[in-house]
Nucleic acid binder design. Structure first.
Lengths: 216, 216
DNA sequence: CAGGGATAGTGAACCTTTTCACAAGACTGG
DNA sequence: CCAGTCTTGTGAAAAGGTTCACTATCCCTG
């Protein structure tokens, strides 16, 4: 068994997204060439990426959209609802709470926390805000969640992430500019809009395209 | 002269970010080893990445933070202010308008557009909202901008991006889930939070870490 | 049921990127 | 001014990822 490139897993998520669109449009069959065009990828790469996990197509025919989508969701672990906990209900946090794409793709907020006592107890986008000190209590009840979304102020990010890990949550989507220092068994995805803008600046300044073909 | 890997350029932005932090903390000198620890990178890689663009260090000593930062900004084209135009003043758009990290790192919104006539004319985070039909007018005046930030509804993204390009703007930070079809001379960076969440799902489900070390 | 056309699956070649390892240069202390 | 220590810059090796090119398989048509 070969080692699967990390980046192949990321691309699987991309393929799944486009397969969902096809499925919504009622398309039943798709070839690696067509899917590649939609994703901006190479057909051979799609076939190879899929081959890391099994055989999902029919030679001479293509891939049945519904079947492949199901298989990919199984592989990715996205054939279920994942619960999110928000930390930091500022501008960005509020926007994330109401972000429709999350719900559409199986991600649901079940808890939201903030330090600001004026916010605690109020409701934003149908979600009651808790105190971040109470995380261990909240997580025992219906506010339990699988993945933390960190959107606090930078100076609270490290401290807050430690509390999250202590409460037993091992995955963090980090919107703060801080590099979190956490145990190795915690998964962290860093999102930094400014880094992406810098790529555009470089492209505009030099004329050479350094933008990513695939979303991240 | 070798070809510079795209990904090296992206990392440069990351290095610059951490150098700015060091600079703000009054640190004058840094070694590739120290900087690598901060960025979660390999020291040899940092040295190699820098070598693509010139020689910025002093052997036996390290890098002078201020000098290296200046050099990087020159290379990246970020030793100036870049003007942003927002399209779509929904939850996410509003959050982006007030996103402090943008201003801190040299990105300033000079215009904001929305289709909703109830919003047009009102002011959000000190910014007056224009009609997206008026982009060609706005861009002639003080609302001129270099990079478009696309945060419209998905069904308007393609259409809106075409208008942006027609108005002469060739760089787009795309927060919609749509794969924009645009001329080759337009630079597009796609930001998709859900793809990042999927990476976390896979990691949690399988136990194997597919998260990105470096922010994107 | 045979032939033609289409498309997945895959080993191998190719290309890119990362890491290693060491020479070159700079500072420090005596 | 010399020896020792430190750290950059860089060719070469290693690792990793992508693309090619071909085979196996399936469907459709006559």
């Amino acid at each position: 068994m070969h080692k699967i490139p990390n980046i192949a897993v990321i691309r699987l998520a991309l393929y799944a997204k486009h397969l969902e669109m096809l499925h919504n449009d009622g398309v039943e069959l798709v070839s690696s060439v067509k899917l590649a065009k939609m994703c901006g990828a190479n057909p051979a790469q799609i076939r190879k990426d899929l081959a890391y996990f099994g055989q999902f197509g029919v030679r001479g025919v293509g891939y049945y959209v519904k079947d492949l989508l199901g298989a990919l969701k199984e592989v990715m672990g996205t054939n279920r609802t994942w619960r999110l906990g928000l930390f930091g209900v500022g501008n960005l946090g509020k926007a994330l709470l109401g972000f429709e794409q999350f719900a559409q793709r199986g991600f649901v907020f079940t808890a939201a926390f903030d330090k600001d006592l004026d916010l605690v107890g109020t409701t934003v986008a149908g979600m009651e805000i808790s105190q971040s000190e109470d995380i261990k209590e909240v997580i025992k009840g219906p506010g339990c969640f699988d993945i933390a979304v960190l959107a606090t102020r930078a100076d609270r990010a490290q401290d807050c992430s430690l509390r999250i890990v202590e409460a037993g949550v091992h995955a963090i989507l980090n919107f703060t500019p801080v590099r979190l220092v956490l145990p190795d068994n915690v998964f962290v995805e860093n999102v930094d809009f400014t880094v992406r803008l810098h790529a555009l600046c470089y492209s505009l300044t030099t004329g050479s395209d350094v933008t990513q073909r695939h979303p991240r």
